[in-house]
């Protein structure tokens, strides 16, 4: 059975898996980006309280493997609190938290390290704080943050594969199921790779377009 045959035969299963993966990513990306940016800005302005909390938690999330956190929240934590939560929500919560603190720390660092001289220049030029934020800080930060945030979001898409290990019927889980039926691992995982390429391609095109449209090299020539 070729890759094409597998895609044709099991296209409904694959599309269902893709749908779950995209739903998962929609939650992870939106919570991570919206919440993380807000948290990062707050952390940069309240360094002692929020800043240290975000820094510490982000370090913990980056040091502890995502899989361990996922298993911990799925099995022992739910047993401890005597609750049963749908694995999809557990995976969405876990990966959203990882993304939230990842984005938060990237944004916190960028805002905290923003060159103060650009703000000073705006002030002596009589610009109001909101004008400085809108016309100076945001454009410079956007250009600076775009590449690292994009890489992190693609990383979170890949991390969504871990959800299969707590029985979320996402793309990887579907591929494993099909493999257990027909045992064609090379073809099946190649088909899986094609799906991930298809999802990542628009993200990469968007990233490249945004980079071309909004970023430029600031280094001295």
């Amino acid at each position: 059975m070729s890759v094409l045959d597998i895609l044709i035969t099991y296209h409904i299963a694959f599309l269902q898996g893709l749908s779950v993966t995209l739903q998962l990513c929609a939650v992870i990306w939106s919570v991570g980006l919206v919440g993380g940016i807000a948290m990062g800005v707050l952390g940069a302005h309240r360094r002692r309280s929020w800043g240290l909390t975000i820094q510490g938690t982000s370090f913990a999330f980056s040091a502890i493997p995502t899989l361990v956190i996922l298993f911990w929240l799925h099995y022992p934590a739910q047993a401890m609190f005597d609750v049963v939560i749908d694995p999809f929500y557990t995976a969405a919560l876990t990966l959203s938290l990882v993304n939230l603190f990842g984005v938060g720390e990237i944004v916190r660092q960028a805002v905290a390290d923003f060159p103060r001289q650009y703000i000073v220049a705006g002030r002596v030029c009589g610009m109001r704080t909101r004008d400085i934020v809108r016309h100076i800080q945001l454009p410079i930060l956007f250009r600076q943050l775009l590449p690292s945030l994009m890489i992190l979001q693609v990383g979170m898409l890949h991390a969504s594969l871990f959800a299969s290990l707590i029985s979320v019927e996402e793309l990887f889980r579907v591929a494993q199921r099909i493999n257990s039926l027909i045992y064609r691992p090379i073809e099946i995982y190649t088909a899986l790779a094609l799906f991930f390429l298809a999802v990542c391609l628009p993200i990469n095109i968007l990233a490249a377009w945004l980079k071309k449209r909004y970023t430029r090299d600031y280094s001295e020539r």
Partner: peptide
Amino acid sequence: PAPWPRLTAVFQQLFLWPH
């Protein structure tokens, strides 16, 4: 509020906005 830009300054480092 400080009376910028009625009072303004140009610094040695210039502080031009790079974007």
